[in-house]
Structure formats: structure tokens, C-alpha cells
């Protein structure tokens, strides 16, 4: 027995030694295509380890605490300025990397990272509403789906507990701008949310199969996630609220204290290759920011109503900035009140 164990551990050591180079990625759960990682490992010989997080704040708190051992993190655009100003990111200059030429020009000079000195697009999408059309056939391009729910959907609604997104949607529904600290608007938001909540069934993440199995009929959700729901249940549709809905982008950044700096930079360059970017989208079903990736994507990505925003609703989509801390504190209060 002891010999077997010794042999096994020797093998394990050898296997570990086969990869001289490593890369530790810290990313959202259920978000990274295993095929993408296999391809990266095969091409570079770098062994990749992925750790999941479930919110931007979790990631930020963990990395700030130190001793995390991660090289790469994938924050949402509203958090990128925080990561930069807290001095957590390395200025890797993706704009000088080989594959930078593939980045869609409209994603280069973005507010959160002008000229792309730190980050590379991973995926971008929208936060909208999901509706099972078997139970409701009215207009779904409105936040009223969850803020003033139609009779048919009441009691079967789920709102993702993502304070930023939900507050922005409620504020725009009340006629305000994202990150507003206008007390009049916020008072209206507070009232609308508290009134609406009695019609909600849950405030939970990860509801793919609950929607597919029709435990839930409507709610707030992200477009790619809704796409994956529709693939399991054809009655599911995605709506773009005309009152306004958030746009977002998650970007690949390298941590300042990364132990594998070169490998991390190689990964940033790697995901800017169209074929690789297509792999990212193929899995999580969100658009990426790389031109030419369409050619490598599954057919259904080109025409999916969750990906292709209707022309007349394009203007309603907004990238919200990073709210001031005092404003954020107000939102937290409303959010706590909502769930008391």
C-alpha cells in the first residue's frame, strides 16, 4: 500500500512539474469556457487555475485583503476605476499588445479605461427583463414587468440581488439618471420598489433552471443568461426596458502583485484574438469586444434577440458610471429597506 501511495505522489509531483508556468485567474462563476482554457494551455504550456467569485465586491474585498495568489481578475466596468484608483491593477498596456488591432474601435476609448492601458474586453451585455411568454403576452420592453407587474406575472417574479443594476433600472423608470442623488427621484424609487416587492417571489442569482422549469415566470436578468434559458425553454423572451436599462462590460485586468506577470499579459493578448474571443461568447452567450470574432461564433449568436439590440431601443441602454460613495450609501439604505 505504502509503495502505491509513494508512486502516486511521485507521479503527482511529476505531473505538477510538467507545467513550469502557471496562471491563476479569478473570474465570475460559470463564465469561462473550458475549451478556451484548454486551447490556451495547449498553445502556451501554461497551467491555468480558475477560482470563482459571485460579485464584484467579493472580488474587490478578497484581493484588497492580500495573500490571494491571483494574477487576473475580471471586474465590471463600474468597478474598473475603483480597482485602478486603489492601486490594485498593473498597467500592462494592452494597447501596445500584438492582438490589440482586433479590438472593436468603439471599446478602445471607454470612460473606465481610456485608451485601454489596463484592461481588455471579456464580454459585454445588458441587464433587462426576462418573461415567459406563455404566461404574459403584453409588451415586455419595459421595467414595469418587475416594478409595476402585470396581474398575470405577480407572485412569480425574481429580481437578481444586484443592487447597482436594479437601482439603475428603478431610477431610470422614475425618470432619473444613473447615480443620481436627487432626493425627489430617490423617494419615488423607494416607493416604487417597496410597492413592487409584494409581487416578487424571490431575489436570487443563478435561476437558469428555475426559469427553464417555470418555477419563475418573469424578472430582472442579464441577456446572456436569458439566452441560455431560452435554449432550454422556447417560451422565454428577453425585454429591453424603454425607460432605460444598464449596459455593462467585464474586462480582463492583471493584478499589480501578480506572481505570473508575463503569463497574465499573454492571456490578455490571447483573448483579443478573434477565434479565442468567439470561444468566450460561445460559452456564456454574451457579445465580446473583438472584431472578426463573429466568423468563429455559432450561427445562433448572430441573430439572437438577446444579443442583437432592436434599433429603436438602442438609445435606452446606458453605461452607468461609478457612483460617488455618498450616493452609494443612500442606495444601500434603500436596498436594505427593500429587504427588511
Amino acid at each position: 500500500m505504502r509503495h502505491v501511495l509513494a508512486a502516486a505522489s511521485a507521479l503527482a509531483l511529476m505531473a505538477g512539474g510538467a507545467y513550469a508556468k502557471e496562471l491563476n485567474i479569478y473570474n465570475w462563476g460559470n463564465y469561462t469556457n473550458p475549451k478556451l482554457i484548454e486551447k490556451f494551455e495547449a498553445e502556451t504550456g501554461i497551467k491555468v487555475t480558475i477560482t470563482d467569485y459571485d460579485s464584484n465586491d467579493t472580488a474587490l474585498a478578497k484581493v484588497k485583503a492580500g495573500g490571494h495568489g491571483f494574477d487576473i481578475v475580471v471586474p465590471t466596468h463600474t468597478y474598473v476605476p475603483i480597482w485602478i484608483s486603489e492601486g490594485l491593477l498593473a498597467e500592462t498596456r494592452p494597447d501596445q499588445m500584438e492582438n490589440f488591432k482586433n479590438m472593436d474601435a468603439k471599446w478602445v476609448d471607454v470612460d473606465w479605461d481610456p485608451g485601454r492601458h489596463y484592461t481588455v474586453p471579456w464580454q459585454w451585455g445588458t441587464t433587462g427583463v426576462v418573461v415567459n411568454t406563455k404566461y404574459y403576452s403584453g409588451d415586455i420592453n419595459t421595467s414595469a414587468i418587475f416594478l409595476d407587474p402585470p396581474e398575470e406575472l405577480r407572485g412569480k417574479i425574481n429580481v437578481v440581488p444586484e443592487m447597482g443594476d436594479v437601482m439603475v433600472m428603478a431610477i431610470m423608470y422614475a425618470g432619473g439618471e444613473p447615480c443620481t442623488d436627487d432626493k425627489e427621484v430617490l423617494k419615488k424609487v423607494h416607493e416604487t420598489l417597496l410597492n413592487a416587492k409584494q409581487h416578487w417571489l424571490g431575489m436570487d442569482y443563478g435561476n437558469l433552471e428555475k426559469f427553464a422549469k417555470e418555477d419563475l415566470w418573469a424578472g430582472v436578468n442579464w441577456n446572456g443568461s436569458t439566452f441560455r434559458m431560452r435554449l432550454q425553454n422556447e417560451a422565454i423572451a428577453y425585454g429591453y426596458p424603454k425607460e432605460g436599462y444598464p449596459l455593462w462590460m467585464d474586462s480582463v485586468a492583471v493584478l499589480k502583485d501578480a506572481k505570473n506577470m508575463d503569463e497574465a499579459k499573454a492571456f490578455q493578448n490571447f483573448v483579443m484574438d478573434p477565434e479565442n474571443a468567439a470561444l468566450i461568447s460561445e460559452f456564456a452567450r454574451y457579445a465580446n469586444g473583438i472584431s472578426g470574432s463573429e466568423a468563429f461564433m455559432p450561427e445562433d449568436m448572430m441573430t439572437a434577440p438577446e444579443i442583437v439590440i432592436p434599433e429603436e431601443l438602442k438609445a435606452a441602454g446606458k453605461f452607468n458610471g461609478t457612483c460617488a460613495p455618498e450616493t452609494q450609501a443612500l442606495y444601500t439604505r434603500i436596498w436594505t429597506d427593500l429587504q427588511k
Binding site: 467579493t58 443592487m163 452609494q328 450609501a329 444601500t332
Partner: peptide, 9 residues
């Protein structure tokens, strides 16, 4: 959890 996460307090 909310205070240590999204609430930042």
C-alpha cells in the same frame, strides 16, 4: 454580508 459587500460599510 451586505455591509461588507455591496454596502461598503
Amino acid at each position: 454580508e451586505l455591509q461588507f459587500g455591496q454596502g461598503r460599510n
